[in-house]
Design a binder for these strands. Structure first.
Length: 266
DNA sequence: AATGGGACCTGCGCGC
DNA sequence: TGCGCGCAGGTCCCAT
């Protein structure tokens, strides 16, 4: 499931391979993923425009175009972008001025593609909290001090902090040795600062390894990311904790599978 | 007001 | 064997 490191990986690769190219043709094989505007307007607005800039905001990819509009892509759980693709088996294909295809795939059709006049006005983006990299220790303490919600759902709340999903929330909490069920305001200052630091470090390391391919995620090249082998708790139910050998447990928290070490995380 | 659960989807893995 | 069910999770939406 693409979270900040996976989307960052794709954004960096897009900058290297499609920046400056013109979109010469758009084929929408599965219209449902185009959320805004109509498919016809989407195709018309993209065709003939050049990709001027590529940005990432939390888990959202933004391709700014020469006509002033922007293509936003949220991959949700199973979205993939592949370049160069075959232009045929995808949900949506963008033919570029180099004759190659930028292909969008999505097994479960949850993804969200939009063509917007001003991406900054997209409500989801307006509602995003700061990314972990942009938060100081002092600010994080202040943010947590009012929050009685459970810490794991809290750090996955995109309006609280943005970019962290289920996988990296579990990994960061393990590394900070914090029980996912603790409430935000129950964390000591020392624990909170450690959690922020470990969240940042986990995301950075995952970016270095080009993301975690546990589900459908692939890099732009179609190759898997390399971070999954470094996971300490995620998807490791019953396996020994790397620190203490206690079997990793799985519970459900906020409706999501939650992996943790019952001995190390207090 | 904050929290929880269902909806949106499809493919895979499991159990009978 | 083959089928049907549950599960995976990002976000929205509604109910409590």
């Amino acid at each position: 499931m693409p979270e900040l490191p996976e989307v960052e990986t794709i954004a960096r690769e897009l900058k290297k391979s499609v920046l400056g190219k013109k979109i010469t043709e758009v084929c929408v094989h599965v219209p449902v993923v185009i959320r805004q505007p109509s498919v016809e307007q989407f195709k018309k607005g993209l065709t003939g425009s050049t990709i001027k800039n590529i940005l990432r905001k939390a888990k959202v990819l933004i391709l700014e175009l020469s006509n002033g509009k922007a293509l936003t892509i949220h991959l949700k759980m199973t979205g993939q972008l592949v370049y160069p693709g075959n232009g045929k088996t995808s949900r949506v294909s963008f033919r570029l001025s180099d004759g190659k295809y930028l292909d969008f795939f999505d097994q479960r059709l949850f993804a969200d593609l939009r063509l917007l006049d001003d991406w900054r006005q997209l409500p989801f983006i307006q509602g995003l909290g700061p990314e972990p990299f942009d938060i100081t220790a002092e600010r994080f303490l202040e943010m947590l001090s009012k929050k009685k919600a459970k810490i794991k759902p809290l750090i996955m709340d995109q309006t609280f902090i943005s970019g962290v999903g289920n996988l990296y929330a579990a990994e960061a909490l393990f590394r900070a040795r914090i029980d996912p069920q603790r409430s935000g305001l129950s964390l000591s200052d020392k624990e909170a600062v450690l959690l922020l630091k470990e969240t940042q470090a986990t995301l950075r390391e995952a970016i270095v390894h080009k993301g975690s391919s546990v589900d459908n995620y692939v890099q732009l090249t179609g190759l898997p990311g390399g971070y999954a082998k470094y996971h300490k708790v995620y998807d490791r139910e019953g396996k020994p904790c790397i620190m203490c050998k206690t079997p990793i447990k799985r519970t459900v928290l906020g409706g999501r599978g939650t992996y943790f070490c019952p001995k190390c995380q207090k």
